[in-house]
Design a protein around this nucleic acid. Structure first.
Lengths: 260, 260
DNA sequence: GTCAATGAATTTGTCTGATTATTCGCGCCA
DNA sequence: TGGCGCGAATAATCAGACAAATTCATTGAC
């Protein structure tokens, strides 16, 4: 019955969708359409009435979806002018949803690189801070996450979740709220490391020894050791990922202008 | 810009308000009320009908405001359950609006400390990256910002803006989009450094020499020198601020003074 | 000829009220 | 005890009308 309403945005799988949660669906689809470049910055969307009719939703539902996007910096609306896609530098790339939408389509290499550079800056420092505080409960959770990761291996979804969780717990262990907000950002990087790795035919190196080294250093209360171990870990991930990106790059020529 | 309809949230000055932009006003006031702790995590707001009547706005305007807050992780709504304040760790502290709302009331010391720790992690690394790329246009803009800052001094709003801009340009000069998103976060820290400094009776040390050192190092293409100079700068700001925070802490008992 | 004021058209913003979907909690029954 | 519906409460969606704001073209004055 329903689900025909997304056709305008994405003529993709007609998966049945609950009749409610329209707002979420519209926001999601529009968000993906924007970050994937189907709508470009500066472009203005059709008028509310027109677009909501195209999407087969009421104007209020559509407006609420646009509010969600505006809150994340993706669009800006003004009377008479209409709703237009904001410039990229205004997008809140650190927002978990925006990041997820980005990675739903193939993300821009520039963004992935930036994410890894950010990891390289933040995670070693976070590991050092965590080693300084050395909170036992966080240590327990880290060990559990690593053991779960070891059990499932990073080739499985459960293993990747455990991997993300390990990195998130380290951020949490710093006791720094703003730093914890970067968890989803870091998590996106972690996730895509393993995905890119898996795309390479080469058998990826076992990530566990490096992870355990980080854990041991934090557990031992050695900030500098933790920092160093984490840096080796992230640098390895960066190396693998940028190799995979370089190989994927030629296939992307012409598809998207991609500037910053 | 207050209005009669905000009385429920903030019984402040009853200045007349433009008839539109209601959504923004409500989102702002509610956002401030939440981050300042007037509504606590777990609490549920009154029903849509009830609350929108209290606020003297239509349900649609109220709902759109709630959507904005939900997009930033501050609230979660579900049928039957109602709209409830999300747990703090879900709040998107890196969102410019959330941060601004936080600083509209007196921010929690924990948050300010966290912000400075983040600055201490990110800014030296960003300065080093900027020194590596050494883009001439960015260098020009940095110099202009610093000269403007020198002209107005940090005791003026224009001077503080120039200060923030200088730090933002450095982030921009890294060529890293996610890093640039931290500009508002860093900017909040920069801003509050000067505010806290101004509250101390002592004459603050002239910040310009340190700023010029950072600029010179970047312009000279010396990553390590830039990193070191920026670290000195931020560490100084952190020292000043945490001193002011410690002194302000006793004054925070009980109720909260007005905002700016 | 240039600039300022005016006004109309267009688009988002707001309001109202009705209907639907979802979910929690309770009572019933096995 | 434990699962299964039933009902009530609440957000979610819909529909349509009106208000406000801004752009843009036109007009008028100097």
């Amino acid at each position: 019955m329903a689900a025909r309403r997304r056709d305008v945005l994405a003529a993709m799988a007609p998966a049945e969708r609950p009749l409610t949660r329209i707002h979420g669906t519209i926001a999601h689809d529009l968000g993906v359409a924007i970050v994937s470049g189907r709508y470009k910055p500066g472009e203005t969307l059709p008028t509310e009435i027109e677009f909501s009719e195209q999407l087969k939703v009421s104007r209020s539902a559509y407006r609420e979806a646009v509010r969600t996007l505006a809150a994340k910096g993706l669009v800006e609306s003004r009377p008479k002018t209409g709703t237009r896609i904001a410039e990229q530098y205004r997008w809140n790339l650190l927002d978990p949803d925006v990041l997820a939408w980005f990675f739903e389509a193939e993300p821009l290499p520039k963004l992935v690189e930036g994410l890894f550079e950010l990891r390289l800056i933040v995670e070693p420092a976070a590991a050092a801070l965590a080693a300084e505080r050395r909170d036992s409960r966080h240590l327990t959770r880290m060990r559990e996450a690593l053991m779960r990761m070891e059990r499932h291996t990073v080739t499985t979804a459960a293993g990747r979740d455990a991997d993300r969780e390990f990195h998130a717990i380290i951020l949490e262990a710093t006791g720094n709220p703003p730093l914890l907000c970067l968890a989803s950002t870091i998590g996106a990087g972690v996730h895509w490391t393993t995905v890119y790795k898996a795309r390479k035919d080469e058998l990826p190196a076992d990530p566990m020894p490096q992870h355990w080294k980080v854990f041991d250093a934090i557990a031992a209360g050695g900030p500098e050791e933790a920092r160093a171990a984490m840096e080796v870990l992230v640098r390895g991930a960066l190396r693998d990922t940028s190799r995979a990106l370089k190989r994927a790059a030629p296939a992307r020529q012409g598809k998207r202008p991609g500037a910053a």
